[in-house]
Write a protein that binds this DNA or RNA. Structure first.
Length: 111
DNA sequence: TTGCTGACCGACG
DNA sequence: CCGTCGGCCAGCA
């Protein structure tokens, strides 16, 4: 219908934009919240498209299940995503979020 | 139009 | 422990 725009990506954008400052989430968590656990890959793909459009989507706040910055290469630089996260107070160690379990933001629970 | 790929995740052997 | 495969949806040649 009109509100949902029949688009998986649109839902992803909506959730990612709701991620609070200094928090992170995972592709699978967002996918699961949307009702499609298997579409975790599409979450990343949606974020990839987001960089082509000015959506204001903090894609750097979205990482994989391990808290690993798998999509850092999509930011154009191998350290861009890492610096963005650290800029928000998030500590990164070897491309991995240190206090991942502490700053993890689950849309299924927080929303 | 068909087919492959992609910032993942979980299961199986 | 490690390698492989399936599933999900959308974009592109």
């Amino acid at each position: 219908m009109d509100a949902e725009k029949s688009g998986f990506f649109q839902k992803v954008y909506a959730v990612v934009q709701k991620i609070p400052y200094g928090r992170v989430t995972s592709y699978g968590a967002v996918a699961q919240y949307l009702g499609s656990k298997g579409s975790a890959r599409m979450v990343g793909w949606a974020l990839n498209s987001s960089k082509y459009n000015l959506h204001g989507i903090p894609a750097h706040r979205v990482v994989n299940r391990q808290g690993l910055l798998t999509g850092k290469r999509a930011f154009g630089g191998q350290h861009t995503m890492e610096e963005l996260l650290e800029s928000e107070g998030i500590r990164i160690k070897d491309d991995q979020i240190v206090n991942f379990n502490e700053i993890f933001w689950d849309p299924a629970k927080e929303l």
